[in-house]
């Protein structure tokens, strides 16, 4: 039993070390090699296209359910549904927007990245990169890291917009809150710092997803089965880390008054 836990911790430490080594290599090559624009743009487009539909759908319904819950609860206490817009937008922009987007992006784009790089690893294509004058860091990791850093904030804004629309639909048609009041509740109480709060989170999630998914891909061993394992491993790890990080980021950012 202890042996098993020890083994798990050992492998966790080794993977963290491996990922750190990869980031060191990213920093090393960042200034020393030609930037792979084509790869970066292709990846950004692929991440965006892969994830925007699901992001929109999940955010829409999350906004809707938030409005419904808020409206009902507040209605029960105060007799009428007030501040629905405020509650929906605060929850979305500070928390759920980045978290939902992160979960969707890791399930769609992150998994695709791990599967792709993992397949390259088990078919010696990563080795081939070294022998043809480049390496996996330069050719694969850096473009993907930038692609995630660019697309995640954009997708998060996208998610916020759909969530707010979802909330509006429920507020206006199920709760009878006039649209004017709903949007007024949002603009009166939301500030730039709330946007910053969500924005910083989405950046950090993007960095984490790119790091975990690329590292899991690069360290894949053991044929097709290995690729499958690496991919599920990457998705589980990123989703757990998103939720854990989200708590600590909220704590830290609010401590700094953001």
């Amino acid at each position: 039993m202890f042996k098993l836990i020890g083994k798990k911790i050992d492998s966790l430490l080794m993977q963290t070390g491996g990922a750190a080594e990869m980031i060191r290599s990213v920093l090393f090559w960042l200034g020393r090699s030609r930037f792979e624009w084509k790869q970066t743009v292709e990846q950004s487009v692929s991440i965006g296209v892969n994830s925007c539909g699901v992001t929109a759908l999940t955010s829409l319904f999350t906004g809707m359910v938030l409005a419904l819950q808020a409206g009902n609860t507040i209605g029960n206490i105060f007799g009428e549904p007030i501040f629905v817009g405020t509650i929906v937008s605060f929850s979305l922009i500070r928390e759920l927007g980045p978290v939902l987007t992160g979960v969707v992006v890791s399930g769609r784009a992150g998994a695709a990245v791990t599967a792709h790089i993992g397949t390259m690893a088990v078919t010696e294509q990563l080795d081939a990169l070294y022998t043809l004058g480049t390496n996996p860091t330069r050719y694969l990791v850096i473009p993907r890291l930038f692609a995630f850093l660019i697309t995640m904030p954009v997708l998060t804004v996208f998610s916020n917009v759909f969530g707010v629309i979802g909330g509006y639909l429920v507020a206006a048609y199920a709760l009878g809150v006039p649209g004017e009041v709903y949007f007024n509740d949002i603009t009166t109480f939301m500030g730039v710092k709330d946007f910053m709060h969500g924005f910083i989170k989405s950046f950090i999630f993007a960095f984490m997803i790119a790091t975990v998914c690329c590292y899991k891909g690069i360290s894949t061993r053991g044929g097709a089965e290995g690729v499958g394992k690496a991919t599920t491993g990457a998705v589980v790890t990123t989703i757990v880390l998103i939720l854990v990080l989200d708590y600590f980021l909220t704590a830290i950012l609010t401590a700094f008054g953001i």
Binding site: T119, M120, T123, E124, Q125, D127, A128
Partner: peptide
């Protein structure tokens, strides 16, 4: 490489 390792 043994199986070519072509970029697919």
């Amino acid at each position: 490489f043994q199986d070519g390792a072509l970029f697919d």
